[in-house]
Design a protein around this nucleic acid. Sequence first.
DNA 1: TTAAAAGAAGACTTAATTGGTCTTTTAGGG
DNA 2: CCCTAAAAGACCAATTAAGTCTTCTTTTAA
Lengths: 134, 134
Amino acid sequence: MMELTRKGEYAIRGIVYLASRPADQVCLLSEIAKAVDVPQTFLAKIFQQFSKIGLVRSYRGTGGGFILGRTSDKITLLEVVEAVEGPIIPNRCVTGAGECDRSNACTVHPVWLKVQDQVRDLLNGITLKELSGQ
Amino acid sequence: MMELTRKGEYAIRGIVYLASRPADQVCLLSEIAKAVDVPQTFLAKIFQQFSKIGLVRSYRGTGGGFILGRTSDKITLLEVVEAVEGPIIPNRCVTGAGECDRSNACTVHPVWLKVQDQVRDLLNGITLKELSGQ
DNA sequence: TTAAAAGAAGACTTAATTGGTCTTTTAGGG
DNA sequence: CCCTAAAAGACCAATTAAGTCTTCTTTTAA
Ligand code: SF4
Ligand code: SF4
């Protein structure tokens, strides 16, 4: 259970690679895709998502490509994962809304809240800088 | 991401209910299904899985039903979840086998190992006894 | 003005999830 | 010995999600 999808895995690979490149130099999607061994068409959509929320900045046209939207020490693994996989939800009932009418009396509910917290904390403590080895 | 499926949720509900019942008294599947609001046919399959690995014991025929395979303080939430959802796998590469040829050099790999550890530890520390409020 | 590059939309295939139905086996009770 | 209650097991079907590829549009430096 709890498995990251390929999308999430590819997203991380791609942006970690981008973080490992010179920060002032745009990077071709095709280069990234090749380097991290991901289908380029799939990675394109992922980077579009990144771009929309400002995790990367894109330049179109000749000489275009991608750079990070912020410095690599300001982007956490949690952000990257949530950008493409959505929030960390170990079970429906932790979304806040009244997803389960049993949640008041439920003894299991607090467990999922704790799982969510722990995982978020862990991922939030790791930046692209560390992951890119710089 | 990481969402428990309905199967997992139902499994927990069902066995926690069973743990809340008198330990020496067999419990009808129909009763459990009704009490925890789960489709009986679906719950049947879940309890068959439980039965195979000894988490519950089943009795067929008239007067049949289910009881816990062990006392409720000896069954952890981790066992229940893994019984129906499979092992806790935040990413392919933590299965032990050479699932990803990048894993040696990969800086992200250790993160998933830690996530796996933390979640397993947490779930392993919770027993059906606590969850059934006894 | 043209070729390179990202953006956007969507078609398509495959696999997993969430059930349902029907038959078979087992066990008690009269 | 037969009837009935109950779980076990074998299929099956709808829905949803994942994963990949295609095609077209827009932007922009040279
Ligand atoms: S854990 Fe409890 S509150 Fe959460 S979905 Fe299950 S029953 Fe509802
Ligand atoms: S995290 Fe690293 S080792 Fe794990 S699958 Fe991704 S690239 Fe491979």
